[in-house]
Simulated assay, not measured.
Amino acid sequence: MPITSKYSDQQIETILTEIAAVFDKHDASPDLVLMIAGNIATNVLNQNVAENQRKAIAEKFAQALISSIDSTIH
Rank of each mutant, 00 (worst) to 15 (best):
D9M: 12
D9L: 04
Q10E: 13
Q11S: 13
I12E: 04
I12N: 01
I12P: 07
I12W: 06
I12H: 00
E13F: 10
E13D: 12
E13R: 15
E13T: 13
E13I: 04
E13M: 07
E13H: 07
T14Y: 09
T14Q: 09
T14G: 04
T14N: 12
T14S: 01
T14D: 13
I15G: 02
I15A: 11
I15M: 08
I15P: 03
I15T: 04
L16A: 09
T17C: 06
T17N: 10
T17F: 02
T17W: 03
T17I: 00
T17R: 12
E18L: 11
E18R: 12
E18Y: 01
E18P: 03
E18W: 02
I19M: 06
A20S: 12
A20L: 13
A21W: 05
A21I: 02
A21F: 04
A21T: 14
V22M: 00
V22C: 06
V22Q: 03
V22W: 00
V22P: 00
V22K: 09
F23G: 09
F23W: 13
F23A: 04
F23Q: 02
F23S: 00
D24Y: 10
D24N: 11
D24W: 03
D24A: 05
D24G: 13
K25L: 06
K25W: 08
K25Q: 08
K25F: 08
H26L: 02
H26N: 14
D27V: 09
D27Q: 12
D27P: 04
D27Y: 10
D27A: 14
A28R: 00
A28G: 02
S29V: 01
S29H: 09
S29E: 13
S29A: 12
S29G: 01
S29D: 03
P30V: 09
D31G: 03
D31T: 11
D31R: 06
D31H: 02
D31C: 05
D31V: 05
D31F: 03
L32K: 12
L32H: 11
L32Y: 04
V33E: 14
L34C: 03
L34E: 12
L34N: 14
L34S: 05
L34A: 15
M35W: 05
M35P: 00
M35N: 04
M35Q: 04
M35F: 10
M35L: 11
I36M: 07
I36F: 04
I36H: 02
I36Y: 07
A37D: 13
A37W: 14
A37M: 14
A37V: 04
A37Q: 14
G38N: 15
G38C: 00
G38I: 07
G38A: 05
N39S: 14
N39R: 15
N39I: 10
I40P: 01
I40D: 00
A41K: 07
A41T: 15
A41V: 14
A41R: 02
A41N: 06
A41W: 11
A41L: 10
T42Y: 13
T42I: 11
T42P: 01
T42F: 15
N43K: 06
N43L: 14
N43R: 15
V44M: 14
V44H: 04
V44N: 11
L45P: 03
